[in-house]
């Protein structure tokens, strides 16, 4: 490609900041994490942390983290896709898109507190349920509230890449499909969705992977009824000061992430 013809020096200069960033802020921290994972809590070299990871406690935690992350991603996608699609149809679409992002600039902790207020026993949500004649429910500290708030937090990150790829769709393609007599559903399934799959993929990546390691919300909204790998890492780093175990869990998270990336990237689009 075009770069081949350039001499090596300019090419390297060009890449320097990014590679420096990778070396300093990605590789160095990974090595640190890996290094710490081989030390037990008293600072002796050992593999005990890895052994501990394969005990039922941590396996169960891994499983439940996956389950919640999956639910959060799936629901985000289900809501984000139609939202992004409809946004591309609006008149001032870039403005509406910005308005989707703006709420995420308000501090997360504050929004969590607002949700505690909304979902509480005497909160707005329950007043509404009472009004509807359903009666007061426990909403706070349930799976529902946890998933709801997580989806709320992540949804802009899902909408944005999907919106971008939908926005790039060539309208003539859709007209063509229409002219060929494809139904709306077929057009979506055979034309629109495959062409926006990259946006969906990057959306899923930026939601699923952080969702695996959520921590603040597990306490504030789920009252520690949901324990994820992130919660546990936070505890190990900040409370127990067992950096070894915390790092070990982090190592597994990194491995999981790499696996996910490789799997989602190998099925290359055939367009």
């Amino acid at each position: 490609m075009w770069i081949q013809m350039e001499n090596k020096l300019t090419k390297n200069l060009y890449l320097f900041p990014y590679l420096l960033w990778i070396a300093l802020f990605v590789i160095a921290p990974i090595l640190l994490v890996l290094y710490y994972s081989f030390f037990d809590i008293e600072g002796n070299l050992s593999l005990i942390n890895y052994q501990k990871f394969f005990t039922p406690v941590y396996l169960k935690m891994t499983f439940s983290s996956f389950w919640y992350a999956f639910l959060i991603t799936a629901i985000s996608l289900l809501i984000a896709y139609p939202t992004a699609y409809l946004l591309t149809k609006t008149k001032h679409k870039q403005l509406w898109l910005l308005l989707i992002i703006v709420p995420s600039w308000i501090n997360l902790l504050l929004k969590a507190y607002a949700f505690i207020g909304i979902f509480g026993t005497y909160g707005a949500a329950n007043s509404f349920l009472n009004l509807m004649g359903i009666g007061s429910q426990q909403i706070l500290f349930t799976d529902f509230s946890f998933i709801f708030v997580s989806v709320y937090i992540f949804i802009p990150f899902m909408i944005l890449p999907i919106f971008n790829s939908l926005n790039e769709l060539n309208p003539t393609l859709l007209d063509a499909a229409n002219d060929l007599g494809a139904s709306k559903w077929t057009t979506f399934r055979r034309v629109i969705f495959p062409l926006t799959i990259d946006g969906v993929k990057s959306g899923c990546q930026v939601v699923f992977i952080p969702a695996l390691s959520l921590f603040m919300l597990t306490r504030l909204i789920a009252g520690n009824r949901v324990i994820t790998l992130g919660t546990s890492i936070e505890q190990h780093f900040l409370v127990t000061q067992d950096w070894g175990m915390g790092s070990t869990i982090a190592v597994f998270l990194i491995i999981i992430m790499v696996v996910i990336m490789v799997v989602t990237n190998t099925r290359k689009r055939g367009v």
């Binding site: 507190y113 505690i116 509480g120 005497y122 306490r219 504030l220 520690n224 009824r225």
Partner: peptide
């Protein structure tokens, strides 16, 4: 046990959660 929480416990108890 309804929940295991941090400093929010004060707000939750004061508001009869």
């Amino acid at each position: 046990v309804k929940a295991i929480v941090g400093d929010e416990i004060k707000m939750l108890l004061a508001n009869e959660e």
